[in-house]
């Protein structure tokens, strides 16, 4: 365990909590891509099956359970509790457009996902400021994991191509978002809208 990974996991947790609280407090999931939250729940389920097969550490087990529980809780908020506020027509990305390349990559990689709020920003042209903070922490979690892999390579001589390649692919998707985030949300109007 190193500072990059620990802070990365905590950023991931913060992102999940921001999203959950945003939906819970505002009683609305406008601007949230329900499909991407379903995809996250699927990813956590498929990847964390090792909860039942191998014990790594208390931290590892607890965090996986927390991620799984929060992913399903968020999906149930979107599709059950606040279903009426879910604007599915703007959540219009075609899952197959993502799954086909990911399925192709799956022969090389285990998974690569990007929250489709990024996609919705390009489509709707804007995102509520709280959603951008959610995406910021998600992107920061991915970026910190790059530091984790650099650290583990140089300090522990550990390398895992599957994790690194899929992690780099994911992080690349955040670059344009980070640019928009720092130029608009932090410096500008507090709300992100495309030029």
């Amino acid at each position: 365990m190193n500072i990059f990974r620990l802070s990365g996991d905590l950023c991931h947790l913060v992102a999940i909590i921001i999203l959950f609280l945003k939906i819970w407090k505002s009683k609305s999931c406008a601007g949230i891509s329900g499909k991407s939250q379903v995809l996250f729940a699927v990813v956590f389920t498929t990847r964390y099956l090792d909860l039942f097969t191998s014990f790594i550490s208390i931290y590892n087990t607890v965090m996986k359970v927390v991620y799984l529980a929060s992913a399903y809780a968020t999906v149930s908020l979107i599709y059950l509790r606040f279903r009426s506020t879910f604007d599915s027509e703007s959540d219009s990305f075609r899952v197959e457009f993502l799954l086909v390349p990911v399925a192709g990559l799956s022969f090389l990689e285990n998974y690569a996902f990007t929250p489709l709020e990024l996609f919705m920003i390009t489509k709707t042209g804007e995102a509520a400021s709280i959603t951008t903070h959610y995406l910021f922490f998600l992107g920061l979690y991915r970026a910190l994991y790059l530091g984790n892999w650099l650290w583990r390579y140089h300090v522990e001589e550990f390398f895992d191509q599957i994790a690194v390649v899929s992690g780099v692919v994911q992080t690349i998707f955040y670059c344009d978002f980070f640019y928009l985030y720092f130029t608009r949300v932090i410096r500008g109007s507090g709300k992100m809208s495309l030029p």
Binding site: Y145, N148, E157
Partner: peptide, 10 residues
């Protein structure tokens, strides 16, 4: 390829 230890990342 993977070497050098356990992939214990989340």
């Amino acid at each position: 390829c993977s070497f050098g230890g356990q992939k214990d990342e989340l």
